[in-house]
């Protein structure tokens, strides 16, 4: 695989000095930002004596896989099979993210591109809701959940995720940029609203929903189900991992691996999604 490090030269408005300056700034700040990433990765391979080294080192001297072995032993000994936790997490993350992207995009589409009474009021309400501290809405939220009888169900996490304000606002920002002529042409061709939404609107804001997927996934992946789920069989994976990691000093190695797993899964999705964004760009002939 050949990676081309040159900056795009197709634009006339670029000076070589500026390019070098940008690259310099990027690399120095990049190194600085990468510290936690490197630290988390090396931490998982550190033997006990290096974990407790003070002051801590960022890099590992004698890498070992013991921490991983310890975690696998703990995983095979859980009271409820680890696959159950994994299945819960998959349900939450896949249904929560997928539903959020589709449902909030549908709403954002009509609010941006249709004319109907109440649309301004509604989108204003979404923006305002972003600014209310979530710390105090926890109690009313719990009351609503228990009125619905949703305590101790996975939908108590999945369904509210569909209605997060972030996705609606993000999608509607991008959808305002779609030219109206595009939609009118499709309408004249007799395409149904859902067809227009699915085959014209969504593809033209692909970078937006690929980004939203990352954001929503990250939030749901970290959810330990603590607010509404009290049954062990319904707990998600991060909860089980956290339990294994919190066993005092002897579990510090396991905790480091857990930290790595918690970080690496969103990164895999992130890299996958970024490559998809690149694909859209190549098909539209930009790069």
């Amino acid at each position: 695989m050949k990676i081309d490090f040159s900056i795009r030269r197709m634009k006339i408005s670029r000076s070589a000095g500026g390019d070098i300056f940008l690259l310099f700034v990027l690399i120095t700040t990049g190194l600085f930002m990468a510290i936690p990433l490197v630290y988390t990765i090396t931490g998982a391979f550190k033997p006990m004596n290096e974990i407790f080294l003070y002051p801590p080192r960022i890099l590992v001297r004698n890498p070992t896989l013991d921490n991983f072995k310890d975690l696998f032993i703990l995983m095979s000994e859980t009271w409820i099979p680890i696959t159950r936790y994994l299945a819960n997490s998959l349900l939450i993350v896949v249904l929560g993210t997928g539903g959020h992207v589709i449902i909030s995009s549908m709403g954002a589409y009509v609010v941006c591109k249709h004319q109907f009474p109440g649309k301004r009021f509604f989108s204003e309400m979404v923006v305002l809701s972003l600014m209310f501290a979530a710390e105090v809405t926890a109690i009313p939220n719990f009351l609503i959940m228990s009125k619905l009888g949703w305590i101790n169900t996975l939908k108590s996490i999945i369904v509210p995720a569909w209605g997060y304000s972030l996705g609606f606002y993000l999608m509607s920002r991008f959808m305002t940029q779609i030219p109206d002529v595009l939609l009118e042409a499709a309408k004249l061709d007799g395409a149904s609203e859902f067809r227009i939404f699915w085959t014209i609107v969504m593809p033209s804001v692909k970078p937006a929903w690929l980004t939203l997927m990352i954001l929503s996934f990250q939030q749901l992946w970290r959810d330990q189900g603590g607010r509404f789920i009290y049954k062990e069989v319904l707990k998600p994976l991060p909860y089980a991992l956290q339990q294994m990691a919190s066993g005092g000093l002897a579990r510090q190695g396991v905790a480091a691996v857990v930290g790595l797993i918690m970080m690496i899964i969103p990164i895999i999705l992130f890299v996958f999604n970024q490559s998809k964004i690149v694909e859209t760009m190549t098909t539209s002939g930009i790069d």
Partner: peptide
């Protein structure tokens, strides 16, 4: 189109606020 989002948003976000 708006209904699914609006119902969930109002129930779990607007109402608690």
């Amino acid at each position: 189109f708006l209904a699914p989002y609006a119902i969930i948003f109002i129930t779990f976000t607007v109402l608690p606020v």
